[in-house]
Write a protein that binds this DNA or RNA. Sequence first.
DNA 1: CGAGCCAATTAAAACGTGTCAACAACCCCG
DNA 2: CGGGGTTGTTGACACGTTTTAATTGGCTCG
Lengths: 332, 332
Amino acid sequence: MVTVGIKEVAQRAGVSPGTVSNVLNRPERVAAATRSRVEQAIRELGFVRNGSAATLRAGQSRTVGLVVLDVGNPFFAEVARGVEDVVSDRDHAVILCNSGESPEKESRNLRVLAEQRVRGVLITPVGEDTSRLQRLRDRGVAVVLVDHSASGDLCSVAVDDVAGGDLATSHLISRGAERLAFATGPLAIRQCADRRKGARRALRNAGLPVRSIEDVVVPEMNAHGGRLAAEKLLAGDLPEAVFCANDLLALGVLRTLLQAGVRVPDDVALIGYDDIEFSSAAAVPLSSIRQPTYRLGKIATELLLDECDDPGGHAHQQIMFQPELVVRESSR
Amino acid sequence: MVTVGIKEVAQRAGVSPGTVSNVLNRPERVAAATRSRVEQAIRELGFVRNGSAATLRAGQSRTVGLVVLDVGNPFFAEVARGVEDVVSDRDHAVILCNSGESPEKESRNLRVLAEQRVRGVLITPVGEDTSRLQRLRDRGVAVVLVDHSASGDLCSVAVDDVAGGDLATSHLISRGAERLAFATGPLAIRQCADRRKGARRALRNAGLPVRSIEDVVVPEMNAHGGRLAAEKLLAGDLPEAVFCANDLLALGVLRTLLQAGVRVPDDVALIGYDDIEFSSAAAVPLSSIRQPTYRLGKIATELLLDECDDPGGHAHQQIMFQPELVVRESSR
DNA sequence: CGAGCCAATTAAAACGTGTCAACAACCCCG
DNA sequence: CGGGGTTGTTGACACGTTTTAATTGGCTCG
C-alpha cells in the first residue's frame, strides 16, 4: 500500500504542500499555470486526499449519520434515498445505521457516529428519551429528528401521526364499521402510540366507545408480524375493520385473512399506513395513509446541512407534514 | 463545541496520554486501579475517541463502503441489512452509497470512500469495467463484488443469473408458452444481460427459435418501468408469457395488464426475479426466482473483513449461489 | 546487598492535511 | 525611481491519537 500524500504531489509539481492544499480547497487563489501543473501531478500520482487528516484538522468530517429503525422497511429505504440524494449533491457521504428498534444498538450507533465526527445525525429515535441526542448536540453535532417531532431545541421533520390515525379510523367508521381492531408493533414506539391515539380520537368524535377498538400488539412491524396479528384476530370474533400501523403489517394481515377464506373488504375492511409502493399492487389493493416519505428525508437533510453551515444563525424548526388518505379496494 | 481529548482525560486521571490510549485499546496492559481511575475520568468528561485521529494514525478506518444500484429496491435493502448486521457485530460502520446505475455517480462515490480510507468496499458495479476497482485494491482497499462475479483477482459473491433466466424461461415454456417477452432494464446492466442469456439458452434447449422471445427494454428497473413495458406490450400482439428482469418491473407490468383487462395467468403468464417479500402478496401472487439476498450481503461482508484482517493469507474466492424457482399463481 | 527482571507507565515521534502570517514578485502611479 | 498595493506562494505549526523505546520502581534470587 503506497501512500501518496500531498507532499509527494508538491515535490513533483515543484511547489510547496501549502499550494497543493490551496489547489484542493480554494483553487481560485492559485495561478492557473501552477494549478494545472499541480492537477497534473495529482493525476499522475493517483493522489487521493486523506479524509481523516482533513477531518482531524477541521474538527468535523464531510459525512452525516442516518439512524433508522429498519432499512428493510421500504418507508425508511425511501427516506434514505432522499437523504442520499441531497448529501451526495453536496459532496458528502452517509453513514447508515440500523437500530432495529433496540435502544442498545441505537446507543452503539451513536457512539460510532460521534467517533467518526460526523457533521450531523439524522435519526428516527427508538424511544422518547432525547437526552443522549441533546448531549450529542452540545458536543457540536447537529441533530435532526426524522419522523418524530421535537420540542423546540431540536430540528425535526415529521408527519402528524395522530391525524393519520384519525384519518384512517374515521374512514373505516364512515364505512359503517363499529367493531375495529388496531394491529400494531410495540406501543413504546411513538409512531404506533400516536396512530393509536388518533384512532381513539376518531372514535370519540364519532360518538363510539373507546372499547370499540381492540389493540392487537405484535413484536415486529413486518409481514411476519402481520401474520401473527391476523392469527390472533382469527382466533376470536372477527372485527369489521382492521387498521394496521404500517403497510408491512397490513400486507401480512391481508394475506393471512385471504388464506383463511375471509373476504376483504366484504367481511373485514383493511387499511394500512405509509402507502409504500407495493400496497397498490397487493392482492386486494390496500387503502393506506400516504406520507411524503422521500421529501421527509430530503428536507431533513437540507435542514441538517443548513444547521451545520451556519450554527449561529440557525433557528430550530419543527416541520410537520399532514398525511393523506388513499382509498383503495381493501376498504371500499 | 468543547473538544475534550485524550489529554484532558489524562490530566484529570493523573496519568499520561499514552496510558489513556492503552486503557482504550489494550486494557489488559494497565493496572486495574489506574484503569478504573481513567475510566471514571472518561465518564466524567464525556470523552469520545476521535476516530479521524485514530484513522490517520492507523492508515485505515473502521468503516466499509457499500455501493448499490438503488437502495429503494428491496433486493438491495435486504443486502444492506445483511451487511449492516455483520459490520455492526464487528464494531465497524457502513457508508452507504447509491450509484443509481450511473457510472459517474459510482466514480464519485468511490472517490469519497477512498478519501474516507474505508477498510473495504462492497460494490455492485454498474458496468463491466473493473479497472477502477483494481486501482482501489492496489491502493490497499479490499474489494468484494456483490451480485456480480469476478475473474480471479477479486472476491465476489453472486447468484447465477444465467441459470436463473433459464429457470424462469424453461418454466414458462413448460407451461406451453411459445411466444414470450423479456421485460428488462438496460442490457448494459450485467444482471439483465445474463438473465436474457439464460432465457435464450432455455429456448434453444426447448428447440424454439430465438425470435420466440421479444426484448422490451425500459430505462428504469422499477414499477414505473414495468408500466412502460406493459404499455409497449399492449400496443402490439400480446405474448403468451412475460419474464421480467426483476420483481419491481413485474409488479408494474402485472398492475398495468390487469387494469387493461388482461387476465393473468390465463391470457398472459408472468414471472419476476428476486422474490422480494411483496411478490407473494401481489394482486396475483407472483412467480419469481429466489435469491439468497440477505446471505449475499452477509457473506460478502465476512469475506471482505477476512481479507482486511489477513491481507497476506487471503485467497480470493468467487462464490456463486444457485437461484431457485418459486411458482405462484401468476404462472400456474 | 546488588544484579537482573518484570510490570506499569511515560515521553516523544509520527500520521497527512489545513491555515495563517509572512514573504516575494510584480505592477501602477506619482 | 521609489512607495504602496496586489497577487501568488511558502513554511511552520496544530489537530488527537497510537506506538515504540525508554524509564521507573518494586521484587526476586543468587
